[in-house]
Amino acid sequence: MTQSIDVSVVIPTHTERRWASLQRTVASALDQKVTPAEVVVVVDHNPALFERAKAEFDGVTVLENVSERGASGNRNTGAFHCRSELIAFLDDDTVAHSTWLGNLAAPFDDPRVVGAGGSIVPAWERTRPSWLPDELLWTVGVSYAGMPTSVAEIRNVWSASMMVRRDAFEKVNGFRVGFGKLGDQNRPEDTELCLRISAETGGHWMYVPDSVIEHDVPLDRSTFRFFLRRCYAEGRGKVQMASLLPRDQKLGAEQDYLKRTLPRAVASNIKAATLGRGGYHALRAATVIAAVAAAGFGGGVETLAALSESESASR
């Protein structure tokens, strides 16, 4: 017997190429052990896809993005439509386990909790690249080594598996439009939203490992070239995000990750390689170094771009 919960599930989508995966995402949202108040699919400026979704999805609300093109405006359109106490987000290339929604809602019994996120596991199209270390799995959009292994307070969660109080989301006007995923641009709009909500409300976010979704990792995201581009984009995005934060709000989690998590990853993989536990460990150690270099280069490019823009504006 299913239970009900006052939460709506918002699924943004933008391209027919993900139609099959969108169908799986919607089916998994509808097949939860706790029944969502509403499942909302939001189509990002694609009239043909909107008409197809509206015609083929029964028991689902289908909307067109009324904001700017991009993931942030698309999610906002769905969230601002909802009237439920809680709003959950899934990406259109994910599949939620049947206990995802109920487990993710559990921390909200505490009124200080403004949001929560769950565990994201990879669904590789083929196999995981041997050179990719656990600490850098975030580059393919899944949970990585160093994240909590039990329910715990966390600074930010990811929009692929996020739940938030509607009043807190509305208080900050949702995701920052124009800052997020659009084409080749990849900015951490979910991290920025979490930080802004915490600063505005004084509430905190929780990580719920037993709230699980599977995230597709296609072949073109399993290449070293994609990996370097993703790290470069992350470097640019974090510098851009830092410029939006209050002066007293630092990127402490990123600093700890760079100073502790990644050096430990290099050391442990080098040790494993020297002990003959597999040559791929040496590749993983080198991958961490390449990741730091690519992110640093991206951060430098973004810093120089911001300085140039500032100088031009002051003339």
Results as ranks from 00 to 15, higher is better:
residue 1 M to N: 03
residue 1 M to I: 03
residue 3 Q to C: 07
residue 3 Q to L: 14
residue 3 Q to W: 01
residue 4 S to R: 11
residue 5 I to Y: 01
residue 5 I to F: 01
residue 7 V to W: 04
residue 9 V to S: 03
residue 12 P to R: 01
residue 15 T to M: 08
residue 17 R to I: 03
residue 18 R to T: 13
residue 23 Q to K: 08
residue 26 V to E: 04
residue 27 A to P: 02
residue 30 L to S: 04
residue 31 D to T: 01
residue 40 V to E: 01
residue 42 V to G: 08
residue 45 H to D: 14
residue 48 A to R: 09
residue 53 A to G: 09
residue 57 F to R: 06
residue 60 V to P: 01
residue 63 L to Q: 10
residue 68 E to T: 15
residue 68 E to Y: 09
residue 70 G to I: 06
residue 72 S to M: 09
residue 72 S to L: 04
residue 81 H to N: 00
residue 83 R to L: 08
residue 86 L to N: 09
residue 89 F to W: 05
residue 94 T to H: 11
residue 94 T to P: 08
residue 95 V to R: 15
residue 99 T to G: 07
residue 100 W to F: 07
residue 108 F to P: 09
residue 109 D to Y: 03
residue 109 D to W: 04
residue 123 A to L: 13
residue 123 A to S: 14
residue 123 A to T: 15
residue 124 W to P: 06
residue 125 E to D: 12
residue 129 P to R: 12
residue 134 D to K: 03
residue 140 V to A: 11
residue 144 Y to V: 11
residue 144 Y to P: 02
residue 149 T to C: 05
residue 150 S to L: 09
residue 152 A to R: 05
residue 154 I to D: 01
residue 158 W to N: 15
residue 163 M to K: 00
residue 166 R to N: 07
residue 167 D to L: 12
residue 171 K to A: 13
residue 172 V to M: 00
residue 175 F to T: 01
residue 179 F to K: 12
residue 179 F to Y: 06
residue 182 L to G: 10
residue 186 N to F: 15
residue 191 T to L: 05
residue 193 L to R: 04
residue 200 E to A: 12
residue 200 E to N: 07
residue 205 W to R: 03
residue 210 D to P: 08
residue 210 D to L: 11
residue 211 S to L: 04
residue 214 E to V: 09
residue 215 H to G: 05
residue 218 P to D: 07
residue 218 P to C: 04
residue 218 P to V: 01
residue 221 R to A: 13
residue 222 S to A: 15
residue 224 F to V: 11
residue 231 C to N: 12
residue 231 C to F: 10
residue 232 Y to G: 07
residue 234 E to N: 14
residue 241 M to L: 06
residue 244 L to W: 08
residue 244 L to R: 06
residue 246 P to T: 05
residue 247 R to M: 08
residue 250 K to T: 12
residue 253 A to I: 13
residue 254 E to S: 13
residue 254 E to L: 13
residue 255 Q to P: 07
residue 256 D to K: 12
residue 256 D to G: 11
residue 267 A to P: 02
residue 269 N to M: 06
residue 269 N to A: 05
residue 275 L to G: 02
residue 278 G to Q: 10
residue 280 Y to P: 02
residue 281 H to Q: 13
residue 281 H to P: 12
residue 283 L to P: 01
residue 285 A to V: 03
residue 286 A to W: 07
residue 286 A to D: 04
residue 287 T to L: 11
residue 290 A to F: 08
residue 296 G to R: 09
residue 299 G to F: 09
residue 304 L to I: 09
residue 308 S to A: 14
residue 308 S to T: 09
residue 312 S to L: 15
